[in-house]
């Protein structure tokens, strides 16, 4: 452990003022910077929320879910199908997304959560892939044509809204969802007894059980919750983006991004996915603007992952908190050098 003061504790003044300032900035964002930055902002908020949803099962519970993106797609298609095939307003699709994701997640949880490590990862990955293939051939999902959702500028909850549904509107929806996800994570995983049960089973499942924790039940609860959160974002995303396609919202890259964001930011931490999500999303979106290539961010992220895994396993948040200092990096380097006979 390094002796230097953690960056987060070195902020001048009361922390509450920083939170207040951040809140004001987020609320005023679309008005301050216009619709292009509102779009960037809503994307960042969505990915932060998605990264957090993966962090619940992957970080806090330690179950590497490599099929999590499927629930994002399921949420999107649930909303899309409700709106396109049945003509319901978005709010019905939103509710349907929650119900379908919860039921499916529970059914999946019963057999797969008996598996651990790589086996769980492979099982969930295969599930996601099969859902994508199913969506490509089913009629109700639009098959290979995808689904075009009605641009519904004036019906929200089935009644007319007095404002145009725009980038700004979706920015605030994503802000609300992202804030709610953060709040749920904070209360459940950092404050409530539930979070300790989850962390206990991650650290040592046998010990947790012998102390009276029903680990099977807790694991299912975390998995269902994390999947529902992903589906909620998926449904709003479908409403916003208007056109959804299995190769898009059910693509493995959706899961990959969530995993990378949570990993880079710091697994099993509340704020890790915020930093990781922001960094990866901005690198990706602004890659063409600032790096001159729309794919250059990929090798960059690959390098970042290597650096994180090798030197800072607790992610960006670990560095900011001062858990990883110069001494640790030096120690890791030395160990690595010895391992590969470099030193």
């Amino acid at each position: 452990m390094s002796g230097s003061a953690p960056v987060l504790d070195r902020l001048p003044g009361d922390r509450r003022y920083w939170f207040l300032a951040l809140g004001v900035l987020l609320l005023a964002w679309p008005f301050l910077f216009g619709s292009f930055w509102a779009r960037i902002g809503l994307g960042a908020l969505m990915w932060i929320g998605l990264a957090q949803s993966w962090n619940m099962i992957g970080g806090y519970a330690g179950y590497l879910d490599f099929g999590h993106g499927a629930y994002f797609g399921i949420g999107g298609f649930a909303a899309g199908i409700a709106m396109v095939q049945f003509g319901y307003p978005f709010v019905v699709g939103f509710a349907l997304a929650i119900v379908v994701a919860a039921v499916l997640a529970y059914l999946v949880a019963v057999p797969t959560l008996r598996l651990t490590g790589a086996y769980f990862a492979i099982a969930t990955w295969a599930l996601a892939e099969s859902i994508k293939q199913a969506a490509l051939i089913l009629e109700i999902t639009g098959g290979t044509f995808g689904l075009s959702l009605p641009r519904s500028p004036d019906t929200f909850i089935g009644i007319a809204v007095p404002f145009a549904i725009s980038e700004t509107f979706f920015y605030y929806v994503m802000l609300l969802l992202c804030a709610a996800t953060m709040l749920v994570t904070y209360v459940l995983f950092e404050r409530h007894e539930f979070g300790y049960r989850v962390k206990a089973l991650r650290d040592d499942q046998d010990a947790a059980e012998s102390l009276g924790i029903d680990t099977t039940r807790v694991k299912r609860q975390v998995y269902v919750l994390s999947c529902v959160v992903a589906a909620v974002f998926g449904s709003v995303y479908a409403w916003y983006i208007v056109f959804i396609h299995p190769n898009d919202i059910l693509a493995p890259i959706v899961t990959d991004r969530m995993v990378i964001m949570a990993l880079l930011g710091g697994l099993g931490t509340l704020t890790g996915p915020i930093f990781g999500g922001l960094l990866v999303f901005l690198l990706q979106r602004l890659s063409s603007v600032f790096l001159g290539s729309s794919t250059f961010y990929l090798p960059l992220i690959g390098t970042l992952i290597m650096i994180t895994v090798l030197f800072a396993p607790s992610g960006i948040i670990g560095i900011l908190r001062g858990e990883i200092g110069r001494d640790d990096v030096r120690k890791n380097l030395k160990e690595l050098g010895e391992k590969f006979d470099l030193l």
Partner: peptide, 24 residues
């Protein structure tokens, strides 16, 4: 109460949190 092989401590929790989990 059981102590699993190797003690089975919850490494990422603090000592006090470990004790609290014992009393769940």
């Amino acid at each position: 109460a059981t102590l699993p092989q190797g003690g089975g401590i919850f490494a990422s929790l603090s000592v006090e949190e470990n004790l609290n989990v014992g009393a769940f």
